[in-house]
Design a protein around this nucleic acid. Sequence first.
DNA 1: ATGCTTGCCGAAACCGGTTTCGGAAGTTTT
DNA 2: AAAACTTCCGAAACCGGTTTCGGCAAGCAT
Lengths: 376, 376
Amino acid sequence: MAIRGDSVGLKPRQRVTITDVATDLGLTKSTVSRALNGYPDIAEGTRLRVSRAAERLGYRPLSHAQAIRTGRVRSLGLVLQIDSEDSARPFLADFVAGITQAASDEHWTVTIAAEPTEAKVQETLSRLTEERKADGFILPRTLVEDTRVASLRAQGVPFIMFGRTPDPTGCAWYDIKGEEAMRAATTRLASLGHERIAHIPGGAQYFYSGLRIDGYKEGLAAAGLPFDPALIGPEAMTEQAGAAAATALLRNPNPPTAIVCAVDRAALGVYQAAKALDLRIGRELSVIAYDGVPEGAYSDPGLTTFAVNSHQAGARLATLLIQRIRGVAPEDLRELAPATLVERGSDRSPALTSADLAQRLTQHPKFKTIQWEDHQ
Amino acid sequence: MAIRGDSVGLKPRQRVTITDVATDLGLTKSTVSRALNGYPDIAEGTRLRVSRAAERLGYRPLSHAQAIRTGRVRSLGLVLQIDSEDSARPFLADFVAGITQAASDEHWTVTIAAEPTEAKVQETLSRLTEERKADGFILPRTLVEDTRVASLRAQGVPFIMFGRTPDPTGCAWYDIKGEEAMRAATTRLASLGHERIAHIPGGAQYFYSGLRIDGYKEGLAAAGLPFDPALIGPEAMTEQAGAAAATALLRNPNPPTAIVCAVDRAALGVYQAAKALDLRIGRELSVIAYDGVPEGAYSDPGLTTFAVNSHQAGARLATLLIQRIRGVAPEDLRELAPATLVERGSDRSPALTSADLAQRLTQHPKFKTIQWEDHQ
DNA sequence: ATGCTTGCCGAAACCGGTTTCGGAAGTTTT
DNA sequence: AAAACTTCCGAAACCGGTTTCGGCAAGCAT
C-alpha cells in the first residue's frame, strides 16, 4: 500500500474552521459549536452574532469532522439492484436528481451503490452502515418479503421505502397510489362501454403488484362488473412478457376488449400482440397502463397511462428520510401521492363486443400459433 | 435547528477501533496506523502481525475519521447533468453500477448528484470539493468547451473524463473509440455496395461529435468514396430529430442509400422516416448506428449498431480515477476501448441505386410535405 | 447581607484516526 | 571501545469538530 504523501491533493488553501469563527468573535469554539447547533445554554444575542459571523466568513463545518464525534455524516444511502434485464431502467436519472436536489437543499449528500443481486445489495447496505458512509437509506421497489427492510429494522438503522410493505412496523414510506390508478383505469374503461376488462399484473415479488390487482378489482366492483379470475393474466414486466400475456388473455373464450396493465412496458407488449393479430389499439383493444415511460408517447396510438413523477418521489423520499434520521417517528413519515392520468389514444369505446372479437380472432391465421419468446 | 441528541442513531454496538487492535497486540495505535499504511519504519514482522490482527478482529478504519487528518474521504464524485429531454437516460444504471462496483473493490464509495443546468453542475462540483465530500470526480459527456474541466484543472482537483477534450493538458480519460466505429460502419456499408453514405452527427457541443464525423470521413476515404458535405445531415440526439435529419438527407438530388448515425436514438428516427416514406430499412435504406440501446434489438429489422459497454466504462473510470487521486500522472491514465459491432438486420446491400431511390421518392405523396415536429 | 438559582460561557476532554519527534536498542564504523 | 548510524517503536501533538463539566456573574428569595 502506498503511503499518503504521494497523492494528488486539493489546494492547501485554508478553509475557514470553527476556530476562525471563534477567534473572530473573541469566543471559544465550544461556544460557537453550541450556538450553531441550537443548544439552549447560549444567549440569543450570541447565537445571532455567531451565525452572522459564520455566514460572513463563509464557514461550512466539515461533515466528516462532525461525524467523528456525532457518528452522523449527513449523507443518504441509495443502493440499487441492477438486474441485467432492466439495466436501462427508466427514470433513474430523474429519481436520483430528485433525491440529490432535496438532499442538497439541507446540505446533505447522497452515497450511491448498485449491485446485481439481492444478496449483494444486502451486503453493501451492511458495509455502508458499518463504515458509516450513510446515516440512513432509501429503499426503492419494496418486495413482499424484503430482507433489506427486515435487516435495517433489526439493526435500528433509519430508512424509508419507496413503496409499502406487509408489516409497516417501524417503516416510513413514500409511495404512489398505484391501486387508485388501477381502479380509475378500470372504471374509466367500464364507462367507455367495456364489459370484459383484463389485468396484466407486475412481478408478484413486488409489493405493489398485489395492491394494483386489488385496485383493479375495486374498479370492477365500482363499475358493477363481475370479477373473472381468468381475466388476470400472467405477470409481465417486459414487452415480451406483455405480448405473451395479452395473447394468453385474448385466447379466453370471452376475450377482454380492454386491458389494464400494471406497467407501461407490458402495455407496449400488448401493442405488439395486437399488431400481430391485426387488432387496432383503441379500437378492437383498449389499453391503459401505469408509469409514464417516454416510449408511451411515441407509440401509435399514444398510450394512455398513469404517470409517476419520479423527480418528486425522489425529492420527497430524501426529505422524509432526513426527518427520520433527525428523530421523527416513522409513523409520522408516510406519504402517498397520486399518479397523473395522461390521456392519449389507447383507450376508446370498444369497436367490437367480446363475442365478436372472439369470432374474429379465431379466424386469424396466426392466432393459434403465435408465440412470444425472449428476443435475442 | 434541532440539537443532536434527539436523533435516531445506529446501534451503539462497539466498533473495532484502531486502539482495540493496538492493545490486542500490546502496541500503540500510532504503530498500528503506520503499519497499516505502509510506512517504511515498521518492521516487516510487525506489519504482518498487525494486518493479521486487524483482519482477525474485523477492523475497518472509518474513512471520515481518517479524513479529518488526511483530507481524503475515499469517495468518488459523480455529478450528472439531467436535461429534461433525456431524463430517461439509458445505461445510467449500468454506468453507475460499474463505477460503484469498481470503487467498492477498493473500499471507496461514490457520491452522486444531479443538476438540471451546466451552471448548477458547476456549483455542485465546487460545493462537493469545498466540503470534501469527494476526492475526485468523474466527468461524463465532455463538451468541446467544458467549464467543469477548466475549473477542476485550475483548482488542482483530480478528475477523469468519460470522453476526450481539445486540450488534454492535465487530463486523464477513458473513452470509446466512436470514430473508429463510424469508420468501420462506413467501410462496411461501402463494401456492401453503397456509394452514397450519409452521416447524422450528434450534438455539436459534445466533443465526440467531431471525432465521429472524422471517423465517417476516414471511412469514406478508405473505401475510395468522395466526401460530399451535403451528406452530413443536421445533428440529431432524439428520434424526432433523427427522423427530420433523415428526411432532409433523402431530399438530396442524389439521396443516400445508407446512413451512419452517431447515436442510436437518431437511427430509430430514421426508421420512422423510412416507414413514413415506405422505404424498408435494410433494403431501400440501410442504417448503422452507435450506442447499443435496447430498443435497437426490438425494432424491425433489428438495428445494426456499435454497442458501448457502459458497465465496463464506469468500472474503468472509477479505477483510473482512484489511481489519479493516489498520484499517478494524468498522462498515464488515458484509455480507449472499442465499441462492439452488433450485427442485426438494418445494413444490407442497397435494393436501389441512389438515382432509383430519388426517382421513387419524388413519386411518394408525402415526400414533399412530411414534417417532424416535437411530439407533445 | 447571605444563600440559592439561573443564565451563559470557557476549559478541557473526547471522537478515531494520522503524523511528527525522539529515544532505546542494535549495528556498523573508526 | 567509543562514536556514529540504523532500525523500530512509543509518546504526544494534531486534525476539526462536539460534548461534558464547572464556574462566574447576575437575579432572586430569605
